[in-house]
Amino acid sequence: MQDITRRRLLWSIPFATAAVAGGGFLAMLSGLRKGNFDPREINIPVINKPIPPFSLIGQPPSAGFNQQELQRQTKPILINFFASWCIPCLTEMGVLQQLSSHIDIWGIAYKDKPDAVSGFLERNGNPYQKIGQDPEGNIGIEWGLSGVPESFLIMPGGIIKWHYPKPLSVASTQILLSLLQ
């Protein structure tokens, strides 16, 4: 008798799993229909919070930087996570070059090799005033990174004011510049 009960339990697990997954799927479809669910939305819990603790080794020609140095800044800084292997990072380099005349940009080379980053910056220009390395990606995790490129506007005192989880564009830089006024 106990063997039959165990068999029924084992057979019911896949059906229960399918029912729960189906319920979640129906909830998403209902949210899409009502307009309160965006599958492309990224929830970043770091907005309006202090920057996380970190310390980055330098990426030549920079000596790197850390949390305390960023917190001591008296003007806004744009932190840009990038990588030499990232095609969208290449596409945003022109926008970063133009933006660097309006705001200091500090770069974080995400999961990349120093030689590859140096070559990338030599070929495409260097809009960064400082560059640090995040070779393992641990700093990116602390910042809530979902991929590269991503940019964060840091206000004086080290508060994250704005986050952009894709390549910067002319439209996004207009939003950023309006935040600086």
Results as ranks from 00 to 15, higher is better:
36 N>R: 06
153 L>K: 02
115 D>T: 12
155 M>I: 08
9 L>I: 12
13 I>R: 14
121 L>Q: 00
31 G>V: 15
154 I>F: 12
14 P>H: 06
132 G>D: 02
136 E>W: 10
25 F>S: 13
98 Q>R: 13
145 L>E: 01
107 G>R: 00
38 D>V: 15
32 L>W: 06
30 S>E: 09
49 K>G: 15
148 V>Y: 12
62 S>Q: 06
181 Q>S: 10
136 E>C: 14
177 L>T: 05
168 L>Q: 01
27 A>F: 13
143 W>G: 00
22 G>C: 05
162 W>C: 07
142 E>M: 10
68 Q>N: 08
166 K>N: 08
32 L>A: 12
180 L>F: 08
57 I>C: 13
164 Y>E: 07
176 L>P: 00
63 A>E: 09
37 F>I: 06
48 N>L: 12
14 P>K: 04
94 G>K: 01
8 R>L: 11
120 F>K: 05
49 K>Q: 06
110 Y>N: 05
112 D>N: 05
168 L>W: 02
52 P>M: 02
16 A>F: 10
147 G>F: 03
145 L>D: 08
64 G>V: 07
80 N>E: 06
74 T>E: 10
7 R>C: 11
115 D>E: 08
55 S>W: 15
90 L>T: 04
50 P>F: 13
26 L>G: 15
47 I>Y: 04
177 L>P: 04
29 L>N: 14
85 W>A: 02
17 T>Q: 09
37 F>N: 03
178 S>Y: 15
117 V>T: 04
2 Q>S: 12
130 K>E: 00
175 I>P: 05
48 N>A: 14
136 E>F: 10
26 L>D: 11
177 L>F: 02
145 L>N: 07
91 T>Y: 14
26 L>E: 11
13 I>N: 13
176 L>K: 00
135 P>V: 05
106 W>C: 02
58 G>I: 03
95 V>A: 04
86 C>A: 07
127 P>T: 05
101 S>Y: 14
119 G>C: 11
123 R>T: 15
41 E>I: 13
149 P>T: 12
136 E>D: 09
175 I>S: 01
85 W>E: 01
156 P>Y: 01
97 Q>F: 03
104 D>K: 02
179 L>A: 07
121 L>R: 03
176 L>R: 03
73 Q>N: 15
159 I>C: 09
88 P>Y: 10
84 S>W: 03
167 P>K: 07
103 I>P: 05
77 I>N: 00
41 E>P: 07
137 G>P: 04
25 F>G: 14
40 R>Y: 12
84 S>L: 02
82 F>L: 05
15 F>R: 15
98 Q>N: 14
66 N>K: 04
126 N>D: 07
1 M>H: 12
5 T>R: 09
97 Q>L: 10
137 G>S: 09
78 L>Y: 04
80 N>Y: 05
63 A>C: 12
92 E>T: 06
181 Q>K: 15
112 D>A: 03
7 R>L: 15
52 P>W: 02
138 N>L: 10
